[in-house]
Design a protein around this nucleic acid. Structure first.
Length: 106
DNA sequence: GAAATGACAGAGT
DNA sequence: GACTCTGCCATTT
């Protein structure tokens, strides 16, 4: 059966809340989200949450992988890159430029 | 309840 | 700089 529309656990809820709080023009890594959510090392789990959450209205495209890599986007990396560029985030060759300076929170 | 899955991270080659 | 291997975790089946 389809997953619940609402976050199942506090961790998931926290991660989604953090994503919601990322302002335009800023990016955050999966590892950071995991750490901010209180579970360092759960970067992989964060990715799973994004994929399964299915909650519209969240800037999922602002969540990138470590090192400024875009990571995945449901097989739509191109779209993710386009969205980031629209918000003023320079992306080149699947990587965010100056991502260390655009990382959130900072 | 246990095994499989995956939008990752880090160190090593 | 790109590729490979291992470790970690929550969710799904």
């Amino acid at each position: 059966m389809p997953a619940p529309k609402r976050p199942a656990t506090a961790f998931t809820r926290r991660v989604l809340a953090l994503v919601r709080g990322v302002p335009p023009g800023r990016v955050v890594t999966y590892g950071d989200l995991a750490r901010l959510a209180g579970r360092p090392g759960a970067a992989r789990a964060v990715g799973n949450i994004m994929r399964e959450a299915g909650v519209p209205g969240l800037p999922y495209h602002r969540v990138i992988a470590a090192g400024g890599k875009l990571g995945g986007y449901g097989g739509q990396e191109g779209l993710k890159q386009a969205l980031l560029r629209q918000e003023g985030v320079p992306v080149s060759r699947g990587r965010v430029r100056q991502f260390e300076s655009r990382r959130w929170p900072q």
